[in-house]
Design a binder for these strands. Structure first.
Lengths: 203, 203
DNA sequence: TCCCGATGTGACCACCCGGTCACATTTCTA
DNA sequence: TAGAAATGTGACCGGGTGGTCACATCGGGA
Protein backbone atom coordinates (compact mmCIF):
# COMPACT_ATOMS: atom_id res chain seq x y z
CA UNK A 1 0.00 0.00 0.00
CA UNK A 2 2.35 2.72 -1.18
CA UNK A 3 1.03 6.23 -1.69
CA UNK A 4 -0.06 7.69 -5.03
CA UNK A 5 3.11 9.79 -4.77
CA UNK A 6 5.26 6.71 -4.82
CA UNK A 7 3.71 5.40 -8.02
CA UNK A 8 4.20 8.80 -9.68
CA UNK A 9 7.92 8.67 -8.95
CA UNK A 10 10.41 8.28 -11.80
CA UNK A 11 11.23 4.60 -12.23
CA UNK A 12 14.87 5.02 -11.21
CA UNK A 13 13.97 6.58 -7.88
CA UNK A 14 11.28 4.01 -7.25
CA UNK A 15 13.75 1.25 -7.85
CA UNK A 16 16.37 2.87 -5.66
CA UNK A 17 13.89 2.84 -2.78
CA UNK A 18 12.81 -0.72 -3.47
CA UNK A 19 16.33 -2.03 -3.83
CA UNK A 20 17.48 -0.41 -0.62
CA UNK A 21 14.49 -1.80 1.25
CA UNK A 22 14.93 -5.27 -0.22
CA UNK A 23 18.58 -5.30 0.80
CA UNK A 24 17.84 -4.20 4.35
CA UNK A 25 14.91 -6.55 4.95
CA UNK A 26 17.00 -9.39 3.56
CA UNK A 27 19.80 -8.47 5.93
CA UNK A 28 17.67 -8.26 9.07
CA UNK A 29 14.23 -9.35 10.22
CA UNK A 30 11.51 -6.73 10.40
CA UNK A 31 12.14 -5.35 13.85
CA UNK A 32 15.91 -5.20 13.46
CA UNK A 33 15.83 -3.68 10.01
CA UNK A 34 16.53 0.05 10.07
CA UNK A 35 14.48 2.58 8.17
CA UNK A 36 17.26 5.10 8.73
CA UNK A 37 19.67 2.84 6.85
CA UNK A 38 17.19 2.29 4.03
CA UNK A 39 16.70 5.99 3.35
CA UNK A 40 20.45 6.54 3.56
CA UNK A 41 21.06 3.74 1.05
CA UNK A 42 18.31 4.97 -1.27
CA UNK A 43 19.72 8.48 -0.96
CA UNK A 44 16.45 10.14 -0.02
CA UNK A 45 15.37 12.11 3.04
CA UNK A 46 13.53 10.32 5.79
CA UNK A 47 10.58 12.64 5.35
CA UNK A 48 10.29 11.59 1.72
CA UNK A 49 9.92 7.97 2.68
CA UNK A 50 6.90 8.93 4.74
CA UNK A 51 5.37 10.46 1.63
CA UNK A 52 5.66 7.10 -0.12
CA UNK A 53 4.63 4.80 2.71
CA UNK A 54 2.58 5.43 5.82
CA UNK A 55 5.13 3.78 8.06
CA UNK A 56 7.77 1.07 8.33
CA UNK A 57 5.17 -1.68 8.47
CA UNK A 58 3.56 -0.67 5.17
CA UNK A 59 6.92 -0.50 3.44
CA UNK A 60 7.78 -3.94 4.79
CA UNK A 61 4.51 -5.49 3.69
CA UNK A 62 4.95 -4.03 0.22
CA UNK A 63 8.40 -5.57 -0.09
CA UNK A 64 7.28 -8.85 1.43
CA UNK A 65 4.43 -9.14 -1.03
CA UNK A 66 6.82 -8.50 -3.91
CA UNK A 67 8.99 -11.35 -2.72
CA UNK A 68 6.02 -13.66 -2.31
CA UNK A 69 4.61 -12.76 -5.71
CA UNK A 70 7.92 -13.61 -7.33
CA UNK A 71 8.10 -16.92 -5.49
CA UNK A 72 4.55 -17.80 -6.41
CA UNK A 73 5.31 -17.13 -10.06
CA UNK A 74 8.47 -19.20 -9.77
CA UNK A 75 6.65 -22.16 -8.26
CA UNK A 76 3.78 -22.04 -10.73
CA UNK A 77 2.72 -25.42 -11.96
CA UNK A 78 4.58 -27.45 -9.36
CA UNK A 79 1.38 -29.01 -8.05
CA UNK A 80 -0.30 -29.37 -11.43
CA UNK A 81 1.06 -32.70 -12.63
CA UNK A 82 -1.10 -35.42 -11.17
CA UNK A 83 1.62 -37.97 -10.62
CA UNK A 84 2.95 -39.54 -7.45
CA UNK A 85 2.42 -37.69 -4.16
CA UNK A 86 6.07 -38.08 -3.25
CA UNK A 87 7.27 -36.97 -6.66
CA UNK A 88 5.21 -33.80 -6.28
CA UNK A 89 6.80 -33.04 -2.93
CA UNK A 90 10.26 -33.55 -4.34
CA UNK A 91 9.43 -31.22 -7.20
CA UNK A 92 8.21 -28.60 -4.76
CA UNK A 93 11.32 -28.57 -2.60
CA UNK A 94 13.72 -28.78 -5.53
CA UNK A 95 12.01 -25.81 -7.12
CA UNK A 96 12.07 -23.89 -3.84
CA UNK A 97 15.78 -24.49 -3.69
CA UNK A 98 16.23 -23.10 -7.19
CA UNK A 99 14.22 -20.04 -6.20
CA UNK A 100 16.49 -19.43 -3.23
CA UNK A 101 19.45 -19.72 -5.56
CA UNK A 102 18.00 -17.34 -8.11
CA UNK A 103 16.51 -14.74 -5.76
CA UNK A 104 18.59 -14.98 -2.60
CA UNK A 105 17.39 -11.63 -1.23
CA UNK A 106 13.72 -12.45 -1.70
CA UNK A 107 14.42 -15.81 -0.16
CA UNK A 108 15.95 -14.26 2.94
CA UNK A 109 13.07 -11.82 3.27
CA UNK A 110 10.61 -14.70 3.26
CA UNK A 111 12.49 -16.85 5.74
CA UNK A 112 12.92 -13.87 8.06
CA UNK A 113 9.20 -13.38 7.91
CA UNK A 114 8.54 -16.93 9.05
CA UNK A 115 11.03 -16.68 11.87
CA UNK A 116 9.73 -13.46 13.24
CA UNK A 117 6.81 -14.06 15.57
CA UNK A 118 5.93 -11.05 17.70
CA UNK A 119 4.24 -9.06 14.96
CA UNK A 120 2.44 -10.93 12.13
CA UNK A 121 1.78 -13.85 14.47
CA UNK A 122 -1.83 -14.25 13.40
CA UNK A 123 -1.03 -13.96 9.70
CA UNK A 124 1.58 -16.69 10.01
CA UNK A 125 -0.80 -18.97 11.87
CA UNK A 126 -3.51 -18.42 9.29
CA UNK A 127 -1.30 -19.28 6.35
CA UNK A 128 0.02 -22.32 8.19
CA UNK A 129 -3.57 -23.45 8.59
CA UNK A 130 -4.10 -23.07 4.85
CA UNK A 131 -1.03 -25.12 4.04
CA UNK A 132 -2.15 -27.78 6.50
CA UNK A 133 -5.47 -28.19 4.75
CA UNK A 134 -3.85 -28.36 1.34
CA UNK A 135 -1.32 -30.90 2.50
CA UNK A 136 -3.86 -33.09 4.23
CA UNK A 137 -6.16 -33.24 1.24
CA UNK A 138 -3.20 -34.13 -0.98
CA UNK A 139 -2.28 -36.81 1.52
CA UNK A 140 -5.80 -38.19 1.58
CA UNK A 141 -5.78 -38.41 -2.18
CA UNK A 142 -2.51 -40.32 -1.98
CA UNK A 143 -3.99 -42.72 0.55
CA UNK A 144 -6.97 -43.29 -1.73
CA UNK A 145 -4.60 -44.12 -4.58
CA UNK A 146 -2.77 -46.58 -2.35
CA UNK A 147 0.43 -44.54 -2.39
CA UNK A 148 0.42 -43.47 1.24
CA UNK A 149 0.13 -45.36 4.48
CA UNK A 150 -3.49 -45.06 5.69
CA UNK A 151 -2.61 -45.81 9.33
CA UNK A 152 -0.67 -42.60 9.80
CA UNK A 153 -2.08 -39.64 11.73
CA UNK A 154 -2.72 -36.84 9.23
CA UNK A 155 -1.96 -33.93 11.55
CA UNK A 156 1.25 -35.54 12.71
CA UNK A 157 2.24 -36.08 9.08
CA UNK A 158 1.67 -32.44 8.26
CA UNK A 159 3.60 -31.40 11.34
CA UNK A 160 6.56 -33.47 10.20
CA UNK A 161 6.56 -32.18 6.63
CA UNK A 162 6.08 -28.63 7.75
CA UNK A 163 9.00 -28.77 10.19
CA UNK A 164 11.37 -30.44 7.81
CA UNK A 165 10.35 -28.21 4.92
CA UNK A 166 10.89 -25.09 6.98
CA UNK A 167 14.36 -26.15 8.07
CA UNK A 168 15.24 -27.36 4.59
CA UNK A 169 14.32 -24.04 3.04
CA UNK A 170 16.04 -21.99 5.72
CA UNK A 171 19.24 -23.92 5.17
CA UNK A 172 19.29 -23.04 1.51
CA UNK A 173 20.82 -19.76 2.61
CA UNK A 174 24.03 -21.30 3.79
CA UNK A 175 24.71 -23.47 0.79
CA UNK A 176 27.59 -22.63 -1.47
CA UNK A 177 27.10 -21.75 -5.10
CA UNK A 178 28.64 -24.90 -6.53
CA UNK A 179 27.55 -28.42 -5.61
CA UNK A 180 24.07 -27.64 -6.82
CA UNK A 181 23.60 -31.26 -7.75
CA UNK A 182 24.75 -32.33 -4.31
CA UNK A 183 22.13 -30.15 -2.66
CA UNK A 184 19.35 -31.38 -4.90
CA UNK A 185 20.41 -34.90 -4.03
CA UNK A 186 20.32 -34.11 -0.32
CA UNK A 187 16.78 -32.80 -0.68
CA UNK A 188 15.81 -36.07 -2.33
CA UNK A 189 17.41 -38.07 0.46
CA UNK A 190 15.63 -36.08 3.13
CA UNK A 191 12.32 -36.71 1.40
CA UNK A 192 13.21 -40.38 1.12
CA UNK A 193 13.60 -40.51 4.89
CA UNK A 194 10.13 -39.03 5.21
CA UNK A 195 8.60 -41.37 2.67
CA UNK A 196 10.24 -44.60 3.75
CA UNK A 197 10.70 -44.04 7.47
CA UNK A 198 13.67 -45.10 9.51
CA UNK A 199 12.31 -48.39 10.69
CA UNK A 200 13.29 -51.50 8.78
CA UNK A 201 11.05 -52.40 5.85
CA UNK A 202 10.53 -56.05 5.22
CA UNK A 203 9.36 -55.82 1.60
CA UNK B 1 31.18 -16.18 35.10
CA UNK B 2 29.77 -13.93 37.81
CA UNK B 3 32.15 -11.89 39.98
CA UNK B 4 33.36 -12.86 43.44
CA UNK B 5 31.10 -10.08 44.69
CA UNK B 6 28.05 -11.82 43.32
CA UNK B 7 28.81 -15.05 45.15
CA UNK B 8 29.31 -13.13 48.41
CA UNK B 9 25.84 -11.63 48.13
CA UNK B 10 23.11 -12.65 50.57
CA UNK B 11 21.09 -15.49 49.07
CA UNK B 12 17.91 -13.43 48.84
CA UNK B 13 19.54 -10.73 46.77
CA UNK B 14 21.30 -13.27 44.56
CA UNK B 15 18.00 -14.94 43.88
CA UNK B 16 16.26 -11.65 43.16
CA UNK B 17 18.84 -10.93 40.47
CA UNK B 18 18.61 -14.44 39.05
CA UNK B 19 14.83 -14.50 39.03
CA UNK B 20 14.58 -11.14 37.32
CA UNK B 21 17.09 -12.19 34.68
CA UNK B 22 15.40 -15.54 34.14
CA UNK B 23 12.04 -13.84 33.67
CA UNK B 24 13.41 -11.33 31.18
CA UNK B 25 15.44 -13.79 29.12
CA UNK B 26 12.40 -16.07 29.00
CA UNK B 27 10.27 -13.18 27.80
CA UNK B 28 12.62 -12.04 25.03
CA UNK B 29 15.58 -13.40 23.11
CA UNK B 30 19.02 -12.14 24.03
CA UNK B 31 19.19 -9.03 21.93
CA UNK B 32 15.69 -7.88 22.75
CA UNK B 33 15.96 -8.56 26.48
CA UNK B 34 16.53 -5.39 28.46
CA UNK B 35 19.14 -5.09 31.18
CA UNK B 36 17.42 -1.93 32.37
CA UNK B 37 14.24 -3.92 33.01
CA UNK B 38 16.15 -6.66 34.81
CA UNK B 39 17.77 -4.31 37.28
CA UNK B 40 14.43 -2.55 37.81
CA UNK B 41 12.73 -5.88 38.49
CA UNK B 42 15.52 -7.06 40.79
CA UNK B 43 15.37 -3.69 42.56
CA UNK B 44 19.08 -2.95 42.31
CA UNK B 45 21.00 -0.14 40.68
CA UNK B 46 22.38 -0.66 37.22
CA UNK B 47 25.88 -0.03 38.51
CA UNK B 48 25.49 -2.89 40.95
CA UNK B 49 24.74 -5.33 38.18
CA UNK B 50 28.07 -4.44 36.63
CA UNK B 51 29.76 -5.40 39.88
CA UNK B 52 28.21 -8.85 39.60
CA UNK B 53 28.66 -9.48 35.87
CA UNK B 54 31.07 -7.98 33.36
CA UNK B 55 28.32 -7.24 30.88
CA UNK B 56 24.96 -8.36 29.52
CA UNK B 57 26.50 -11.27 27.66
CA UNK B 58 28.06 -12.77 30.78
CA UNK B 59 24.82 -12.48 32.71
CA UNK B 60 22.99 -14.15 29.84
CA UNK B 61 25.45 -17.02 29.58
CA UNK B 62 25.22 -17.60 33.32
CA UNK B 63 21.43 -17.83 33.15
CA UNK B 64 21.52 -19.95 30.01
CA UNK B 65 23.89 -22.41 31.62
CA UNK B 66 21.60 -22.65 34.64
CA UNK B 67 18.72 -23.55 32.38
CA UNK B 68 20.77 -26.10 30.49
CA UNK B 69 22.11 -27.66 33.67
CA UNK B 70 18.58 -28.11 34.96
CA UNK B 71 17.46 -29.65 31.69
CA UNK B 72 20.43 -31.99 31.62
CA UNK B 73 19.59 -33.14 35.15
CA UNK B 74 15.96 -33.59 34.15
CA UNK B 75 16.83 -35.71 31.13
CA UNK B 76 19.35 -37.84 33.00
CA UNK B 77 19.11 -41.51 32.14
CA UNK B 78 16.93 -41.10 29.07
CA UNK B 79 19.57 -42.67 26.84
CA UNK B 80 20.73 -45.27 29.33
CA UNK B 81 18.24 -48.07 28.74
CA UNK B 82 19.49 -50.16 25.87
CA UNK B 83 16.14 -50.98 24.34
CA UNK B 84 14.67 -50.08 20.98
CA UNK B 85 16.08 -47.06 19.13
CA UNK B 86 12.62 -45.71 18.51
CA UNK B 87 11.52 -46.24 22.09
CA UNK B 88 14.53 -44.23 23.23
CA UNK B 89 13.59 -41.34 20.96
CA UNK B 90 10.06 -41.34 22.23
CA UNK B 91 11.33 -41.31 25.79
CA UNK B 92 13.56 -38.37 24.96
CA UNK B 93 10.84 -36.19 23.47
CA UNK B 94 8.27 -37.11 26.08
CA UNK B 95 10.69 -36.19 28.81
CA UNK B 96 11.56 -32.93 27.06
CA UNK B 97 7.89 -32.11 27.00
CA UNK B 98 7.62 -32.73 30.72
CA UNK B 99 10.60 -30.48 31.30
CA UNK B 100 8.94 -27.69 29.35
CA UNK B 101 5.86 -28.19 31.47
CA UNK B 102 7.78 -28.16 34.75
CA UNK B 103 10.25 -25.36 33.97
CA UNK B 104 8.51 -23.18 31.40
CA UNK B 105 10.87 -20.24 31.89
CA UNK B 106 14.00 -22.32 31.45
CA UNK B 107 12.36 -23.90 28.46
CA UNK B 108 11.70 -20.56 26.83
CA UNK B 109 15.24 -19.41 27.52
CA UNK B 110 16.61 -22.46 25.75
CA UNK B 111 14.34 -22.20 22.73
CA UNK B 112 15.12 -18.50 22.40
CA UNK B 113 18.77 -19.42 22.38
CA UNK B 114 18.31 -21.82 19.47
CA UNK B 115 16.31 -19.31 17.50
CA UNK B 116 18.72 -16.49 17.89
CA UNK B 117 21.45 -16.68 15.31
CA UNK B 118 23.48 -13.47 14.99
CA UNK B 119 25.49 -13.89 18.18
CA UNK B 120 26.32 -17.45 19.40
CA UNK B 121 26.19 -18.72 15.84
CA UNK B 122 29.35 -20.77 16.15
CA UNK B 123 28.37 -22.22 19.51
CA UNK B 124 25.05 -23.36 18.10
CA UNK B 125 26.71 -24.95 15.10
CA UNK B 126 29.20 -26.74 17.30
CA UNK B 127 26.57 -28.25 19.55
CA UNK B 128 24.52 -29.25 16.53
CA UNK B 129 27.57 -31.10 15.26
CA UNK B 130 27.85 -32.93 18.57
CA UNK B 131 24.21 -33.98 18.46
CA UNK B 132 24.62 -35.14 14.89
CA UNK B 133 27.45 -37.45 15.83
CA UNK B 134 25.56 -38.86 18.79
CA UNK B 135 22.46 -39.43 16.71
CA UNK B 136 24.31 -41.06 13.86
CA UNK B 137 26.15 -43.50 16.09
CA UNK B 138 22.85 -44.41 17.78
CA UNK B 139 21.34 -44.91 14.35
CA UNK B 140 24.22 -47.10 13.23
CA UNK B 141 23.78 -49.25 16.30
CA UNK B 142 20.08 -49.56 15.43
CA UNK B 143 20.95 -50.60 11.89
CA UNK B 144 23.36 -53.21 13.24
CA UNK B 145 20.58 -54.60 15.44
CA UNK B 146 18.25 -54.78 12.45
CA UNK B 147 15.90 -52.14 13.86
CA UNK B 148 16.61 -49.40 11.35
CA UNK B 149 16.58 -49.27 7.58
CA UNK B 150 20.19 -49.58 6.36
CA UNK B 151 19.47 -47.96 3.01
CA UNK B 152 18.71 -44.55 4.47
CA UNK B 153 21.20 -41.68 4.26
CA UNK B 154 22.47 -40.99 7.78
CA UNK B 155 22.92 -37.25 7.43
CA UNK B 156 19.48 -36.87 5.92
CA UNK B 157 18.04 -38.88 8.78
CA UNK B 158 19.68 -36.62 11.34
CA UNK B 159 18.48 -33.58 9.48
CA UNK B 160 14.93 -34.84 9.64
CA UNK B 161 15.02 -35.69 13.33
CA UNK B 162 16.72 -32.46 14.20
CA UNK B 163 14.15 -30.36 12.35
CA UNK B 164 11.16 -32.14 13.72
CA UNK B 165 12.56 -32.26 17.23
CA UNK B 166 13.27 -28.53 17.18
CA UNK B 167 9.78 -27.66 16.04
CA UNK B 168 8.22 -30.15 18.42
CA UNK B 169 10.03 -28.68 21.38
CA UNK B 170 9.33 -25.10 20.39
CA UNK B 171 5.65 -25.85 20.15
CA UNK B 172 5.54 -27.08 23.71
CA UNK B 173 5.28 -23.42 24.66
CA UNK B 174 1.87 -22.96 23.17
CA UNK B 175 0.26 -26.03 24.61
CA UNK B 176 -2.38 -25.63 27.27
CA UNK B 177 -1.96 -27.00 30.75
CA UNK B 178 -4.57 -29.74 30.46
CA UNK B 179 -4.63 -32.38 27.73
CA UNK B 180 -1.21 -33.55 28.82
CA UNK B 181 -2.05 -37.04 27.65
CA UNK B 182 -3.16 -35.66 24.30
CA UNK B 183 0.17 -33.94 23.80
CA UNK B 184 2.17 -37.00 24.74
CA UNK B 185 0.11 -38.96 22.26
CA UNK B 186 0.79 -36.41 19.53
CA UNK B 187 4.51 -36.72 20.18
CA UNK B 188 4.19 -40.46 19.75
CA UNK B 189 2.30 -40.03 16.50
CA UNK B 190 4.88 -37.65 15.11
CA UNK B 191 7.62 -40.14 15.91
CA UNK B 192 5.56 -42.88 14.31
CA UNK B 193 5.51 -40.87 11.10
CA UNK B 194 9.29 -40.67 11.27
CA UNK B 195 9.73 -44.35 12.04
CA UNK B 196 7.24 -45.77 9.57
CA UNK B 197 7.34 -43.22 6.77
CA UNK B 198 4.40 -42.01 4.77
CA UNK B 199 4.74 -44.43 1.92
CA UNK B 200 2.61 -47.56 1.98
CA UNK B 201 4.16 -50.51 3.77
CA UNK B 202 3.40 -53.88 2.32
CA UNK B 203 4.26 -56.00 5.36
C1' DT C 1 36.98 5.64 67.07
C1' DC C 2 39.11 5.83 62.77
C1' DC C 3 39.95 4.33 58.45
C1' DC C 4 40.01 1.77 54.29
C1' DG C 5 38.53 -1.43 51.14
C1' DA C 6 34.34 -3.48 49.43
C1' DT C 7 29.90 -2.49 47.84
C1' DG C 8 25.77 0.37 46.31
C1' DT C 9 23.95 4.13 43.42
C1' DG C 10 21.64 6.66 39.67
C1' DA C 11 22.61 10.51 36.79
C1' DC C 12 24.77 10.48 32.71
C1' DC C 13 26.98 9.13 28.11
C1' DA C 14 26.88 7.94 23.23
C1' DC C 15 24.23 5.73 20.20
C1' DC C 16 20.35 3.86 18.02
C1' DC C 17 15.43 3.85 16.57
C1' DG C 18 10.62 5.32 14.09
C1' DG C 19 8.24 9.21 13.21
C1' DT C 20 7.11 14.50 12.66
C1' DC C 21 6.91 19.06 10.89
C1' DA C 22 7.98 23.67 9.50
C1' DC C 23 10.05 25.09 5.74
C1' DA C 24 12.47 24.93 0.91
C1' DT C 25 11.96 23.56 -3.68
C1' DT C 26 9.89 21.95 -7.77
C1' DT C 27 6.01 21.32 -10.86
C1' DC C 28 1.73 22.29 -12.73
C1' DT C 29 -2.04 25.31 -13.82
C1' DA C 30 -4.67 29.41 -14.70
C1' DT D 1 4.25 34.79 -15.02
C1' DA D 2 1.88 34.44 -10.54
C1' DG D 3 0.35 31.47 -7.45
C1' DA D 4 -1.22 27.11 -5.84
C1' DA D 5 -0.41 22.37 -5.23
C1' DA D 6 2.71 18.63 -4.84
C1' DT D 7 6.99 17.04 -3.36
C1' DG D 8 11.60 17.12 -0.94
C1' DT D 9 14.25 17.87 3.34
C1' DG D 10 16.77 17.09 7.66
C1' DA D 11 16.84 18.89 12.26
C1' DC D 12 14.37 17.40 15.89
C1' DC D 13 11.37 14.63 19.24
C1' DG D 14 10.57 11.08 22.70
C1' DG D 15 11.98 6.80 23.88
C1' DG D 16 14.83 3.03 24.04
C1' DT D 17 19.42 0.67 24.73
C1' DG D 18 24.21 -1.11 27.18
C1' DG D 19 27.58 0.71 29.77
C1' DT D 20 30.34 4.23 33.01
C1' DC D 21 31.85 6.82 36.90
C1' DA D 22 32.22 10.04 40.65
C1' DC D 23 30.42 9.73 44.75
C1' DA D 24 27.78 7.78 48.96
C1' DT D 25 27.45 4.13 52.18
C1' DC D 26 28.69 0.24 54.80
C1' DG D 27 31.44 -3.30 57.64
C1' DG D 28 35.02 -4.88 60.07
C1' DG D 29 39.78 -4.86 61.74
C1' DA D 30 43.46 -1.86 64.15
Amino acid sequence: MPTETFYNLPKAKQEAVINAAVAEFARSPYDQASLTKIVAEADIAKGSMYQYFDNKRELYLYILNMAYAEKKRFLQGVFDEEDDFFATLKRYYRRSYLFAREYPLYHRIITHYWDFCAEFEEEIKASRELRANEFISMLEAAVAKGQANPGIDKDAAFFVYHSVGKELIENFLELSEDDQEKHLKFIDQVLDVLALGLQTRKE
